Amino acid sequence: MKSAAHFVKVLIVFLVLKNNMQTTKISEKNAVYWDELCGSNIAKVLGVTDSSIASLKKFDDWYFDYYPYLFDHIPFAEMPNKKVLDIGLGYGTVAQRLAESGALYTGLDIAQGPVSMVNHRLSQCHLAGNAVQGSILSPPFDPGTFDYVTAIGCLHHTGNLQLAIDQCYRLLKPGGRLIFMVYYAYSYRRLLTSPILTLNYSMKECFGYHGVVGESSKKQSAAYDASAEGDLAPHTDWISARSLKHFCRAFSSVNATTENIAQERPFQKRSREDLLKTKWPSIVGLDIYATATK
């Protein structure tokens, strides 16, 4: 019996160390991959060729027009004098809007490129705040520091979604809120492109599984994130609202809704503007937007 118990302990330690090594490798790859600003492909289409105020405004106007529901989830009007940590900075659109709202702004990103962009935005617009390079899996901040944490479209790339959420919880003050977006496992795109994986995931959840879908094919991942050269994100997770709420079980309350839809199969005959007015995004939308209160 003692030998069996010892074997189990050794196995657990081995699995933990293996998982930590895998997560570290993903973080290293993320630091390189996301150095190219998320949204760079769209910026080229829009004709954004520099980082001047006028050029960035062109990008920001497109961004908020394309994702109008962001204002339903991020309470910018409540941000003045609140300590806000913004994770996953991309082109810095949300970062600048948070700083403009009067938030006591701090940005965090695994890659240097987005950090430099946000600090450039803040400087040229004479806004207070600062962005630093680091990982939410091991954040360089004290517990209970922030009133809000925002993370739009990044936690599912960390390689450890549960740990990322747990760290956000740790950084929040009591009553603080985590506002974040992750990819939805049961979106129309997943149902069409990954029916077997989606069915398997559904069956696992029926038997009590709480977690992410896991790795998918390169083709399936490419439908979500790809660099200008066509390279794919080092890691991507998809999750259901049910499993996401389980991941947020330490919080006192969690609200989750689905958003986003594209003019693609099976909706290619309607404009995205019209599609956003239908109920489809709230049923099989691409993304889950969640607010978790500590």
Rank of each mutant, 00 (worst) to 15 (best):
Phe7Gln: 12
Leu11Gly: 00
Val13Leu: 13
Phe14Asp: 11
Val16Thr: 06
Leu17Met: 14
Leu17Cys: 13
Leu17Lys: 11
Leu17Gln: 14
Lys18Tyr: 11
Asn19Ile: 02
Met21Thr: 12
Met21Leu: 15
Thr24Ala: 15
Ile26Arg: 02
Ile26Tyr: 04
Ser27Lys: 12
Glu28Gln: 15
Ala31Tyr: 07
Val32His: 12
Asp35Val: 00
Asp35Ala: 03
Gly39Ile: 02
Ser40Lys: 09
Ser40Phe: 05
Ser40Leu: 06
Ile42Lys: 15
Ala43Arg: 13
Ala43Ser: 14
Lys44Met: 09
Val45Thr: 14
Thr49Pro: 00
Asp50Trp: 06
Ile53Val: 15
Ser55Lys: 01
Lys57Val: 00
Asp60Arg: 05
Trp62His: 10
Tyr63His: 14
Tyr63Asp: 06
Phe64Val: 03
Asp65Thr: 15
Tyr66Gln: 12
Tyr67Ser: 04
Pro68Thr: 09
Tyr69Asp: 14
Leu70Arg: 12
Phe71Gly: 00
Pro75Cys: 08
Ala77Trp: 09
Met79Gly: 07
Met79His: 11
Met79Arg: 08
Pro80Trp: 12
Pro80Cys: 11
Asn81Gln: 14
Lys83Ala: 14
Lys83Gln: 13
Leu85Ser: 02
Leu85Arg: 04
Ile87Thr: 04
Leu89His: 08
Gly90Val: 11
Gly92Asn: 11
Gly92Thr: 12
Gly92Lys: 08
Val94Leu: 15
Ala95Asp: 10
Gln96Leu: 13
Ala99Asn: 07
